[in-house]
């Protein structure tokens, strides 16, 4: 039972990241009809918003380290700590939650610039060309990050108070120390749920969302009513960039970011979108969590002993089966990818 619950929690935690990235990806496909291979790079850029903020907050004064006698070594003390003492240290400690407020405007700006500057020129071009240009853009973005931040992962910790584990077993009345899970991973799942629900609510309960949904179904008719659908779709692209960026910024304590992390998640996210159904928001979320949970359970030793290496291929195996049996995906619209 405990093994089951632990793997389930782990699956939810992995699925939360997959769902958030796939959510934005499928939102862009559903509105603009663009297959955006640079979406993984947006996730990576979000993570580097947190890294950049950490670098800014920890700009330090160099002081000679007297304990080193062989050569001249220097200790670094952040100015924030020198000026504000414990308050400064607390601000540095809470860099990840603070970085969310930085990531929202930056990612929105990046998203809007990307759509206006490049992607809009490819709306009427074949998907193959869209894939080529967005993939090229992803490579440019990741090489820029590599040039500025280097190739190595950069660790950024969660706030001290949230770096331990929660005793879920005790909370659920199963006894102390029976079931523990890291606080930050639980927060990530909750954060992911909150973001997804907010976007759903925005699209469902606002006039803007209604127009977007109408445009997704029949763009031409909405245009004939005198509504500028394109402008709204551009904003949707910006929203997708923000969702990917927030997913990246919050993921930093789980996985120290490097320039390549976007590509690592991109392939998985595409599989999630295909399994969920191209353009289906609900499908992306459901498939994200489903594949995360499957991946987690397939890593169990009992299962790996029966089918060695299954943990590495399970996601792709599911995608192959779905494409063969139900090409439009779990919740995809009829006709999409079926011709």
């Amino acid at each position: 039972m405990d093994v089951f619950l632990l793997q389930l929690l782990n699956g939810l935690d992995k699925g939360a990241a997959y769902a958030l990235i796939a959510f934005g990806l499928t939102l862009v496909f559903g509105t603009l009809g663009v297959v955006n291979f640079a979406h993984g790079a947006l996730f990576m850029l979000g993570a580097f918003c947190a890294v950049t903020l950490q670098k800014i907050l920890t700009i330090s004064k160099k002081v000679k380290d007297e304990s080193i006698t062989f050569f001249d070594a220097y200790k670094e003390t952040p100015y924030l700590e020198i000026w504000w003492g414990d308050t400064g240290a607390a601000i540095i400690d809470w860099v990840i939650p603070i970085s969310i407020f930085l990531a929202i405007p930056i990612m929105l700006l990046i998203g809007l610039s990307m759509e206006r500057g490049l992607i809009r020129h490819f709306y009427k071009r074949p998907h193959a060309e869209q894939i080529l240009v967005t993939f090229g853009l992803a490579i440019v973005l990741q090489e820029l990050i590599r040039a500025f931040f280097g190739a190595n992962p950069i660790p950024v910790s969660a706030p001290e108070i949230l770096s331990g584990s929660a005793d879920i077993g005790y909370i659920l009345g199963m006894g102390a120390d029976y079931l523990t899970y890291p606080w930050w991973r639980i927060i990530y799942v909750l954060f992911s749920g909150a973001i997804i629900l907010s976007v759903f609510a925005f699209l469902q309960f606002t006039t803007f969302g209604m127009v977007v949904r109408a445009g997704m179904h029949d763009r031409e008719t909405v245009g004939l009513l005198g509504i500028n659908v394109q402008r709204r779709f551009t904003i949707v692209f910006g929203m997708a960039a923000v969702v990917a960026g927030l997913a990246g910024a919050m993921y930093v304590p789980i996985l120290p970011p490097d320039y390549h992390m976007g590509m690592d998640f991109l392939v998985l996210s595409f599989v999630v979108v295909v399994v969920g159904g191209m353009g289906s928001l609900g499908g992306a979320v459901a498939a994200g969590f489903l594949l995360g949970i499957l991946q987690s359970f397939s890593s169990l030793n009992e299962i790996k002993n029966i089918i060695p290496g299954i943990d590495q291929i399970i996601i792709y195996l599911v995608a192959v089966v779905i494409i063969l049996v139900r090409p439009r995906g779990l919740m995809g619209r009829k006709g999409v990818m079926e011709d």
Partner: peptide, 16 residues
């Protein structure tokens, strides 16, 4: 796998 990044799915089975 080398470069797995997130090892959580391999660590959770160790717990109990």
């Amino acid at each position: 796998p080398v470069g797995a990044g997130d090892f959580s799915q391999y660590i959770t089975p160790v717990l109990n």
